[in-house]
């Protein structure tokens, strides 16, 4: 691919992450409404919410410092950056070389770090509680994340995402127990990291149960819009990561294949939305101190994946 084509695919990848994320969340919310027997507000509702928030004035807490005001921008920037390195429409993504899986996780780490600080900045108990719990969940999820990355890299001898994508695409038939385990581990991690049921509830504003919502409780106007948008992108990015690692078939290797790849990605995301909603509807939110066990299971699965790679493959 020449430079121009590379830039084009990269621009499309970034645009996809930023613009399709609300659509994906709209789809998930719509499914959720249906599964609960309610009438859905339409798949475009997240866009309308964002537009509304962008046009509103900002109510800023008296005590808020520059950290609080800078956080939405930093979070938005890092998550968009994370989205731009995952080769989900083309495996020849130029920015993909600038971060491997571990660096990608660290990008989420920056966003989390600043969100947690923003939670503590205003000086209310909700924010602090959210920050404390968020950091706890993140730290317990991290060993599972690393073990997942480790197992995936055992196959492809690489942690670079486009190499992994190309490697998995090259396999004709494969029935690998370790990939199966890691896949389940990944789903658990994804639920925890993107703040879905059973770990956190994205729609709750009940004081004692919120984690992510607790941290961003004081945001309003465009700050809130950016935080919400970043949250949607995070779900989207994790889903694309899942696609890249476990079902990369159809990801294009040149510009001509991109439209078809886009179609496939849309189909896969539709399916992921169904899975997420099925899990969310089927489970109740856990007590906060059951979360360690949940993430321990994820770690165990990933570890079994690693072990069975050595033992059975």
């Amino acid at each position: 691919m020449n430079i121009l084509e590379q830039l084009l695919t990269e621009a499309m990848q970034i645009a996809l992450t930023a613009l399709a994320a609300p659509l994906f969340v709209g789809w998930v919310r719509m499914l959720k409404c249906w599964s609960q027997g309610r009438r859905a507000p339409g798949i475009l509702q997240p866009y309308r919410n964002l537009l509304k928030l962008f046009s509103k004035d900002i109510l800023l807490a008296e005590n808020a410092s520059w950290v609080f005001r800078a956080t939405p921008y930093v979070v938005f920037g890092t998550i968009l950056m994370a989205g731009s390195v995952i080769p989900v429409i083309s495996s020849e993504l130029p920015l993909s070389a600038s971060a491997d899986i571990i660096a990608l996780v660290a990008l989420f780490g920056i966003a989390r770090f600043f969100t947690a600080l923003a939670g503590m900045d205003v000086g209310t108990s909700f924010g602090g509680m959210g920050s404390s719990r968020e950091m706890m969940i993140a730290s317990l999820a991290e060993p599972a994340v690393l073990m997942t990355a480790f197992t995936v890299s055992l196959f492809s001898h690489s942690t670079s995402l486009s190499v992994i994508v190309k490697y998995v695409q090259g396999l004709s038939f494969f029935l690998s127990p370790s990939m199966a385990f890691v896949f389940f581990a990944f789903i658990l991690i994804m639920l925890a990291e993107t703040g879905r049921v059973p770990v956190d509830n994205p729609v709750t504003h009940l004081e004692l149960t919120m984690i992510h919502e607790g941290m961003i409780l004081e945001y309003s106007g465009r700050h809130l819009a950016l935080m919400e948008w970043a949250g949607m992108m995070k779900l989207f990015v994790f889903s694309s990561l899942g696609i890249a690692l476990f079902s990369p078939w159809g990801i294009a290797s040149d510009v001509a294949g991109v439209p078809f790849a886009l179609l496939l990605v849309a189909l896969k995301l539709t399916a992921i939305g169904v899975i997420v909603v099925l899990i969310e509807t089927g489970m109740a939110k856990m007590r906060i101190f059951r979360v360690p066990e949940f993430l321990g299971t994820a770690f165990l699965l990933a570890t079994l994946g690693m072990l069975s790679h050595f033992m059975l493959e």
């Binding site: 770090f113 950091m135 991290e142």
Partner: peptide, 25 residues
Amino acid sequence: AALLALTAVLSASAFVKAFGVSFLG
């Protein structure tokens, strides 16, 4: 390696606390 990963995020947690509690709020 998993243990080291746990350490890395726990240390981020410790410094969110250090910075958040002493400088913010």
